[in-house]
Design a protein around this nucleic acid. Structure first.
Lengths: 129, 129
DNA sequence: CAACTTCTACGAAAAAAATCGTAGAAAACC
DNA sequence: GGTTTTCTACGATTTTTTTCGTAGAAGTTG
């Protein structure tokens, strides 16, 4: 089941997960380099975080060669779903609708994007009949 | 200007803001009681947090009587907007669309809610012509 | 093979956030 | 008016998260 409960990743942990989701199984060095495109982080800082995440079960790793290869355990969507649920609870008092409406308002989607959402909605309306 | 000049509130700070937005200007005692409906927090913990928030400019207060009355400075929407922007950046790599689509997927809105979103979208489509 | 680089492990410090305890002033109570 | 409760102030501690430094093993290079 994809509904598994992972401890909420911290901010830095999430950054690492993103890199691994984007790049697939990777070395600490690659992850660290990717992180440094956004902000300065020391190599051993990244290493330590990844070790902690491994201990928590957020990452698995292959230690066959000296340079370990790390991989995200949870999939992106399930973490996004958890974070989104909590976010809606904490910031929008649980109202996903209000959040969606505000997101649409802030973001000013293009006509093409609006179309995509409209299709999704029509899809959902059909299913509800 | 409802611009973004407030430091991101921490988790606890946000909880306090929610209480104040919901209840209007309030005493520490009331805020603390509201917080305790969700989880156990000591009175002086809440007090201290509110004092810190006051120092940061997140709250203003009236000290005319011994029992101070605190009030949120930023309005709910502007904080929600900031938090939402950051959330989309951190969790959905900046793609508000993807976030909205997933939120709709998770939440399974009612027909009535779907209608409301559709109206909003049609509204926006018109404006873009 | 000696010098250099790259890697892991891990303790420990630093930074950020949250919690608590105590003191003393004001108010309420009886 | 003495006792008890309620309030603020604030230092200090605890907890969580992030960062860093060092040591030593394993590779690389010339």
């Amino acid at each position: 089941m994809a509904g598994k409960k992972y401890a909420e990743p911290t901010g830095s942990e999430l950054e690492i997960l993103q890199v691994l989701w984007d790049n697939g199984p990777s070395t600490v060095r690659l992850v660290n380099e990717e992180m440094n495109r956004k902000r300065e982080v020391g190599y051993t800082t990244t290493l330590k975080l990844m070790q902690i995440m491994h201990a928590k079960g957020l990452l698995k790793r292959n230690t066959d060669s000296r340079t370990h290869i790390y991989e995200a355990v949870p999939d992106r969507e399930s973490i996004q779903r958890n974070l989104l649920d909590n976010f809606v609870d904490n910031v929008f008092s649980g109202s996903a609708m209000q959040m969606v409406m505000q997101a649409l308002g802030n973001h000013r989607p293009s006509v093409e994007e609006l179309g995509r959402i409209k299709s999704l909605i029509e899809e959902m309306e059909k299913k509800q009949q």
